[in-house]
Design a protein around this nucleic acid. Sequence first.
RNA 1: GUUCCCGUAGUUCAACGGAUAGAACAUUGGUUUCCUAAACCGAGGAUGUGGGUUCGAUUCCCGCCGGGGACACCA
Length: 604
Amino acid sequence: MPRGRGGIRLGGMSAWFNPARELDALLRQAAASVPALGAGFNPELKPSDPRHADFQANGVLGAAKQAKANPRALATQLLEALRAGGGLDERLVQVEVAGPGFINFKLTPAALGAWLREYRDESRWRAGAARLMGGRKVVIDYPSPNTAKQMHVGHLRPIVIGEAVARLIEFCGADLVRDNHIGDWGTNFGVLILAIRRAGFQLDAKSPTALEDLERLYKEGSAATKADPALMDAARAELAKLQSGDLANSALWKQIVEVSNAACQRSYDQFGLKTDVILGESFYRDKVDQVYAELAKHGLAEESEGALVVWHDEEPRFSRDAETKMPFIVRKKDGSSNYASTDLATLLYRAEHLKADEIVYVTDGRQQDHFHQLFLTGAKWFKASGRQLPRLRHVWFGTILGEDGKAIKTKSGDPVRLQELIDEAAAKAFEAVSAKSPDLPEAERRAIARAVGVGALRYADLSSNRTMDYTFSWSKLLAFEGNTAPYLMYAGVRVRSIFRKAGLSVGQGEEGADDPVTPAEIALARKLVAFTAALDQSLEELRPHHLCTYLHELASAYGAFYAADSVIVDDPAVKARRLMLCARTSAVLECGLRLLGIEPLERM
RNA sequence: GUUCCCGUAGUUCAACGGAUAGAACAUUGGUUUCCUAAACCGAGGAUGUGGGUUCGAUUCCCGCCGGGGACACCA
């Protein structure tokens, strides 16, 4: 993400969409004329603790050390150069040298007011954010489940995180393709087919218990093949038959996939998840031969113990000299394809047919080594064959642990089913909404409960850093107070209620609104302008929790404003400017919630 | 054994090398003739451990302790 490339000014309008970017650019310009700093100076501009300022530049401290200069004196020089440059209007931004040599920037009420009047709605923000990823074609790979398993709580994260990351990327201007790369061509099928044969089970895809039956059989098969290596070989043989076109296995495979996809779709519907394409591993069945041929041709892959593998000697743990060998196995010794084969074929397809500039893989953290090897192999392969490698990113998340502190797995006991979790959340929310708003019709209370319950689940998962593991807990996932989705949704509902009471629709009644005045108005306005910084930060490493933190702070600032300053008052000027703050809060909050995949409400 | 991730108030989590380590829950004291109290205002309480780098370390490096993951044909 390039910084300091000048700012965007939409159609000659005056306010900066993203003040941090503008200030960064101005500081770099100014530094060029300060001898001790020069053109390569990085101002290290960051959002500041609001007690001090809106933004602070820390870069002078390090530079002063390098130049053996007094940091405060150097900061003062830079500040003078900045003023001389003429790009800074001090009626909008107050600047001062502070502490050991920070440069602090504080937006004045005039700047806050200008921003609020100008960046009114989502279309303006999208236009502003489009500089982040505009014109880029991005493929995102999620939730990519394995087939023939019931959805349990472990499936929550790829759905929820994947959707939030996808929406964020799309919001920032990318042309996005959501590709559900389902795992439908692996050894798990061999295991399952073997188990079905051994049990003499007749699969009926239309049976309501079909998925449960499959899951039970898979568990049996999994236990059996684990206990007996001969059975594992038999399972692999079933897969090899499938992959080479055996009619009976292919027919069975088709039925299993059908049952599995229908069940997954029912879960996706409840999360509002829509994928653009479903190109599972089986889609690449006839595209892996090209991968083997090209890797061999360029000398990247070699035979080892009968398998075709790629070593990466520059990475000690993937090198052929490693103590425990961890090659990237691209073809098994029985000739079957595996995860690596199909992922390489998928990479090529996305680059050549989908024209991806960037590919984002959303999976759990246990696959880090796999993706590291995939990316290394992809880079060498594309370079050797003269292709342009898309930017590859592994957006991984931590594991949901069971009560025993171990990862929740289908095989170890019975983890909570996803449907059970959703139903429980909705039931609890229904109880709450019925207690607090008994006058609403039952149908509406049901709909609200659904939105609140699912929203709470999603937010609980998104609000902490995705790389953290967490232990499954009903109370954590079903919390409705504090830093939760219902808190944010409630703040939004209170804004909408004001407009209803005033007989206006959101956005009306703010004509001629002036700059914020009271402390609560100013604090809220500063928070609203900080939306751009929150977007930047979330997008940078694709971590939605930054957006969650921001939205919670915004809702909290609104809560304080709501308690301190009445909106519907007699003074038309006061009313107009507070209505403007309400409208902006509503819009930012709802836009932010939607980015997280949470549907805002009119009332609750 | 090799390697990756993690360790912050009683609990669940923030902090992109910077100022007095922020929140939420729980505990505790207050706020409602007034726009939804699912709210607001206040109080107490924390960086596993030992070194190092740095003007400055929760953050970077090394050791130790503790938890989890991966490691030859699962995905």
